[in-house]
Amino acid sequence: MDFDFQKEARKGYFKYFSIWFLIVFVLLIATAAAGIRHYRIMQAPRANTAAPSERVYDEANLLTDEEEQSLRDYIAEKEAKYHIDFVVWTFDEPLSDKSSLSDSEWNRLIMNKADDFWDQRQYGYNKGFEGDGSLLADCRYPGQRGEWLSTSGSVYEALSSAEVDSILYDVDEYYDSNPYKAYKAYIDGVCRKMGGGVPGFYYLIALVAAALFTWVYYSSHAKKNAAANTVAVKQYVVGGKPANNTGRDNLLHKNVTKRIIQTSSSGGRSGGGGGGHISSGGAHHGGGGHRH
């Protein structure tokens, strides 16, 4: 019987990739199962009915009625999609009676105020205590101006201090010029960080990375494997070394040069940001603020 090279080659191919085929298959099944579970969760109705329906508290009167309504509609749309609460609260009352506040005092006061506002109204998409969502508190009192982003539940879990800071920079861009856009930037920023899936550009990067990997893979296996010259320098020298080997190394002259080493000093910058903490109501919150 003739030896079937093609059949053997096919067997070799499947044997070579068998582990990887198995891993991809298991991953595919796990992803499909997780996707179905995720879809079901997203289809589930809101569990927390204790929180008020209002999401926009414009006590500092920064928004027009139309802007307020538009923001409410936008929040409703995002809440339905991401299953997290969004609350915007502006106020122009002082955080403290003290005439001047240090940055750390300002941070502590606005953080407590925002957390209490959230906890007392029992916000959170899934539950009234440590529920999923975030609040943007915007203090417009002269000398104490600035915003604080308070996070809770899944938003607290998902957002790092750096990510909170990044969202607040988006808010800062419109803070003075257009508060409506600033609050939308807060909502968009949180939505972006909360994912809602993997961003589209990631798949492009993955495509490029896979192509690079394939090139390396191809190159390493397509090597011609040519032979190298393995003849030693003294391969054919009788006894492995020269005879009557004499040498002379006479010092003719010597000189020394010197050079001064230039040194430079460099400074650094450090950044800050809010972190995890427990509010007066006993709930876990995260977040951060930018004082203006």
């Binding site: 005879a243 190394d249 006479n250 010597k254 020394v256």
Partner: peptide
């Protein structure tokens, strides 16, 4: 930096 210059010679069979 010290630079030393030598006269080098070798002889061998």
């Amino acid at each position: 930096t010290e630079t030393s210059v030598y006269d080098v010679s070798r002889s061998m069979d």
